[in-house]
Write a protein that binds this DNA or RNA. Structure first.
Length: 350
DNA sequence: CTCGCCAAACGATGGCCTAA
DNA sequence: TTAGGCCATCGTTTGGCGAG
């Protein structure tokens, strides 16, 4: 990436925030994009706000013992600590990088920009920095309390999609806060959490964290998991597909809003799933009925996803609920109108 | 306005390294 | 041997655009 653009992104990342994030804004982002993006001083408070909100909601909505509630609060504390440290390190590194770029005190070598005190990747599509030495251990309670055979179906779906096969334990890295909770709810127990990296996207930074579930062992390889998901689906069991879709599913808002029902998941292994929709998508099913099946398969998991405001879950609900779809359309139109208003105001001012 | 395509943008995958 | 950290690449997603 050219230097000017890198400078621009650093400025975007470091720009001052007029007002701290509100819960409404944060939930809006999570339920439409899934990822939190913006200036450094917005993104990290936003993450923390989200974590606080979710932990409180879980404590209210699920039947938990006092011990489990205490455990949740400890989890929140650990996440908060991690995010604070990550915030600090990100700010320091990006500030050092920006200063160096402005003053011309840097060198570019092997796709990296080196500054006194920090360096960043600039060769990759998205420039990013690595976060070092920030990790924590915690416990996450079994909030879903599903019978083991049901839980395992959900685990299988995650394994077939986003869950990595890198270690002996199940793990995942994500920049989407809702995924942290959605995944860890199926891999409860001891978790090791690590601050991974910060991307400089064109809309500000996004922060990803890495979680390892230490109370579980891998049971399936990627390929096994995928073919098992398909086997279950053929036998009419949609639960594994549900979490597989949460991981790799394609959320195409515009299509659902127009009344098109296409259930597709990422195509890395599309041939395993039979029908191929395009180079990148495997068509799993079409029609409103398929989304209804997914929604039903969610069961108590759906309650968690509701409070997480997971964007992919919103998508499933949109697809199955005509009233909701109409409301969503109206909301989007209102947003556009507000946006237009803001733009013209800005024109008048300048 | 709708559809389908395309490429930039994004971020996940997974190998390698090292210290304990 | 394994837990944790570092690194680079490449597959997927999304928004934008042109055609119908």
């Amino acid at each position: 990436m050219e230097l000017n653009k890198i400078k621009q992104r650093l400025e975007l990342a470091l720009r001052p925030v007029e007002k701290p994030p509100t819960l409404e804004e944060v939930l809006e982002e999570v339920s439409t994009r899934g990822v939190l993006r913006g200036p450094v001083d917005w993104v990290f408070p936003a993450w923390m706000l989200y974590v606080d909100y979710v932990v409180q909601k879980i404590a209210e909505s699920f039947q938990l013992t006092e011990e489990e509630k205490a455990q949740l609060l400890q989890f929140r504390h650990a996440m908060r600590r991690l995010l604070l440290d990550m915030w600090k390190q990100t700010k320091e590194k990006l500030t050092a990088l920006h200063k160096a770029v402005v003053e011309g005190m840097f060198k570019i070598e092997r796709g990296r920009l080196y500054a006194p005190g920090a360096w960043m990747y600039i060769n990759a599509n998205t420039p990013h920095i690595k976060i070092n030495d920030i990790s924590t251990s915690a416990r996450f309670s079994d909030v879903l309390k599903l019978p083991h055979e049901r839980l395992e179906l959900f685990q299988l779906g995650w394994r077939a999609s986003d869950e990595s096969q890198k270690k002996r334990w199940p793990d995942m890295e994500t920049a989407q806060p809702w995924q942290v909770f959605a995944w860890v709810a199926t891999r409860y127990g001891d978790v090791y959490i690590r601050a991974a990296m910060v991307n400089l996207t064109h809309e500000g930074v996004s922060a990803s964290i890495h979680i390892i579930a230490r109370s579980w062992r891998h049971r399936w390889s990627k390929a096994e998991a995928i073919s098992l998901v398909v086997d279950y689906l053929r036998r009419g069991e949609w639960a594994p597909l549900f979490t597989a879709w949460l991981g790799d599913g394609n959320a195409r808002w515009s299509k659902v809003l127009r009344g098109k029902y296409i259930l597709s998941i990422a195509a890395k292994e599309s041939w395993r799933l039979g029908l191929v929709a395009s180079t990148y998508e495997a068509l799993v099913a079409t029609g409103r009925e398929a989304f209804v099946k997914l929604r039903e398969a969610a069961d108590v998991y759906g309650e968690l996803l509701d409070l997480l405001k997971a964007h992919k879950w919103t998508y499933i609900k949109l697809a199955t609920d005509d009233g909701l779809r109409v409301a969503y359309k109206l909301m989007k139109e209102r947003e556009k109108a507000v946006l237009r208003l803001k733009e013209s105001l800005q024109r008048i001012r300048s």
